[in-house]
């Protein structure tokens, strides 16, 4: 349904995203994992046609047979919200503080010409109930600031779901929430995806969150794909040194007294990244070839873009 082919994003000749390809089928979830500067959010914005000024995208973003990158803004607007829904990290800034939430949910439906105002308000109430807002009839009249963070995220989800989009893009939807609330929201998203058959692109810095919601995972670093594959396989037996490093750096289970194994150094700014593999410089296996040439795609139980894939030494 969604197929991203050779997506590149540049900002004044600086590569922000290098040659990214992936696809998502109806009802399927793909997790996009990366740290800050990995380009994961930019990929999402490029799909929506919402890149910041000065950034240029090339390649193809095929959505139900149409290349979104080739569409003008007016045509894209008929996709945004209608066929592709999006939820963000901070629902407080994504919701309009001066409008009642029922009205905001209904607005999307009216905007895309699916319903008239009174039908839309009835549908909004149903949607709020569906996403687990208590007493939706009363809550319709609340303003965003009267809700808790978790409830606001539920409202955002209701808005994104309103037009029954084929694809949902969720950019760090639970990163600002408490763990107990996070787990409820993740369950809700999972539930909706299975019931409505939406494709979901789930973006997060947190591997554990991805593991909970996405069958497939794509790991990004410095604007380039590192490794992709079945989420469980990727977590059990990663082949790319970056994925391995990421997992070793996380404290999990009974690790007290042992030392964590951080990835040395820090994420360099985009203009200092190697032209070959961006992980070069922090990678224990990097050599001169890694620096100069983009690494090849190597296929096994996961696919890794690496000259030296394999078990951790």
């Amino acid at each position: 349904m969604l197929s991203v082919e050779h997506l590149r994003i540049t900002f004044r000749d600086l590569p922000i995203l290098r040659d990214l390809s992936f696809s998502i089928d109806r009802g399927e979830a793909l997790g996009l994992v990366g740290e800050s500067g990995s380009g994961k959010s930019m990929a999402a914005l490029a799909i929506m046609g919402l890149l910041p000024k000065g950034m240029k995208a090339s390649g193809r973003v095929m959505f139900e047979g149409e290349n979104l990158l080739a569409l003008d803004d007016a045509r894209l607007c008929t996709y945004r919200g209608r066929h592709i829904g999006m939820i963000f990290q901070e629902p407080m800034t994504a919701l309009n503080p001066v409008h009642r939430i029922g009205q905001q949910v209904a607005e999307t439906l009216v905007l895309h010409g699916l319903m008239n105002q009174s039908e839309a308000l009835r549908e909004a109430e149903r949607l709020l109930e569906r996403v687990g807002i208590d007493e939706p009839h009363r809550r319709m009249h609340s303003y965003p600031h009267e809700l808790s963070g978790g409830q606001r995220q539920r409202v955002m989800i209701a808005m994104a779901m309103a037009c029954k989009p084929g694809l949902l893009i969720a950019d760090e939807p639970t990163s600002a929430l408490d763990v107990t609330v996070q787990s409820e929201i993740l369950d809700l998203l999972q539930d909706l995806r299975l019931q409505e058959g939406m494709g979901t692109l789930f973006i997060s810095h947190d591997l554990a969150v991805i593991a909970k919601v996405a069958r497939h995972t794509l790991v990004l670093y410095g604007g380039a794909a590192m490794e992709t594959g079945d989420t469980l396989a990727l977590l059990r037996e990663p082949r790319h040194p970056y994925t391995q490093g990421l997992l070793a750096a996380l404290p999990h289970g009974r690790t007290r007294g042992t030392r964590l194994q951080p990835i040395p150094g820090f994420v360099p700014p985009a203009h200092q990244l190697a032209p070959g593999c961006p992980f070069y410089g922090r990678c224990p296996r990097g050599d001169s070839e890694c620096r100069m040439r983009p690494p090849p795609l190597t296929l096994a139980h996961t696919h890794a873009w690496c000259f030296h894939p394999g078990r951790r030494a």
């Binding site: 740290e35 591997l207 490093g245 990421l246 404290p251 990835i263 994420v267």
Partner: peptide, 14 residues
């Protein structure tokens, strides 16, 4: 902090 940096700081603190 990012995951890869977080571990550096936690190690340093301990």
């Amino acid at each position: 902090l990012d995951v890869s940096i977080q571990a550096q700081i936690l190690n340093l603190l301990s």
